[in-house]
Write a protein that binds this DNA or RNA. Sequence first.
DNA 1: TAAGATTTGTTCGTATGTATC
DNA 2: GGATACATACGAACAAATCTT
Lengths: 257, 257
Amino acid sequence: MSVNRETGKLRGSGARRSRPVQVADAIKDWVVEHGLRRGDRLPSEQDMIGRFAMSKGTIREAMRILEAQGLIETRTGPGGGSFVGEVSAERARALLGNYFYFRDLSVADIYQVRRLLEPELAASLAGRLDEGQLGELEAVIARYPEPARSVEEEREQHIASLEFHARLAEFGENELLGFLIGFMARILSDLTVHRKLYEPHNIELWRRGRAYQSDLVGALRAGDAERAREVMRDHMDTARALMERQEAEVLKRFIGG
Amino acid sequence: MSVNRETGKLRGSGARRSRPVQVADAIKDWVVEHGLRRGDRLPSEQDMIGRFAMSKGTIREAMRILEAQGLIETRTGPGGGSFVGEVSAERARALLGNYFYFRDLSVADIYQVRRLLEPELAASLAGRLDEGQLGELEAVIARYPEPARSVEEEREQHIASLEFHARLAEFGENELLGFLIGFMARILSDLTVHRKLYEPHNIELWRRGRAYQSDLVGALRAGDAERAREVMRDHMDTARALMERQEAEVLKRFIGG
DNA sequence: TAAGATTTGTTCGTATGTATC
DNA sequence: GGATACATACGAACAAATCTT
């Protein structure tokens, strides 16, 4: 309980924070201290009003803060209330994406990291996927069997090919590694749409990417970690080069127009 | 504007979302559509109440959601209101940390990624730091000139040595790479405290870590990218081995006790 | 320094919606 | 269907912060 009985004020120092924020922090601490786990129930709204001696509105704003961070979920009705919730990967990606929204990452920045992580993931998965999983990967590749004939189709194919990497990331054992790769696939997806990076029609990107991904599935099935690593590294290097050329093209057009 | 004039309801389908959440999403879309940048002002509370035809409480809850995500900041008084805010690195790390809180990352997971990223950062910084920056790094190293004599001191030293990496990460040009490395330093810090990973008194970790970091600063000053990469890779490999041994010790004690 | 204007911050009472029994 | 136990939403009033004059 983070209420200072002397002053009647919530402790928590530094910049002046609004009461809902202070209450949210207090609740967060309370959850951690009591070691609550996913699904455990928090005190009811009324209870909180009593505990913190604050109005319903303030408590509700605090709960919304926690909810926005994915820390709690709330249900109405009898037996309802607020419960400790697990932050979903999707929400975590979105929250992190907000951070980079104004930061204008370059394609080069993203690929510098991708080039390091993706080959490691590929190697770690060699020989560890069952036929179902390998089949899923092949199904994704099958979604772009031929070069795109329109700009929209090309964009969709690019997104689909990024999904290949996102799926792969989910299969790994290392959740940190998987999350990071999934996140990069996501922001590249966003960049593709937002900056219209797909516009310079590029058959090369399609042809090479598809070949690499097929080779990769082969190496994974064969359990050849080193080949998987190699293929993925080559894939990253060519994709980076193509994407950067594309980025430069878009920039040139933008300045020219 | 995301209000459906036919039904009078906010659009946005799928799972039933509370009104504050819908409003928050609508405002987010509005900001993106209008291309608002950091510091730009949002409509006032009163204005929102009118636009969305909702009560003050609901609007305020929506604003809290956006605030919790770091997307807006709010000030009182004349000329006050809500403004588009930049998500701070610190907040982004905290939000992402929430995601991994229940996921029990192993030290091995973290080091698998660290081992890939840190050497790359080190290499990219060789010859690019000025004396002021190199001095800052040396100042961090100077905070643990001798082996710790107590458990608390050892913990503090470990945290300080992680700060070395966090500082280094800030100096890089690639914001994605820097953020990820800073984030990993943070969760290792938390793990150190939370799981009491520092308890098995370990002079070895201190001696080796310090030597590596000094070597690294030397390589950076000399502009030797390859040596910087090598030193960092070795540092990561030994640190990983030591940390994992420590993790195993703690686990054994835990089971035994 | 003081008063007034503007905008968010907080409270309270009441009413409504929703899920369980 | 009715009773119950919760969260959800509204509106009016008042408090606090901060800028201007």
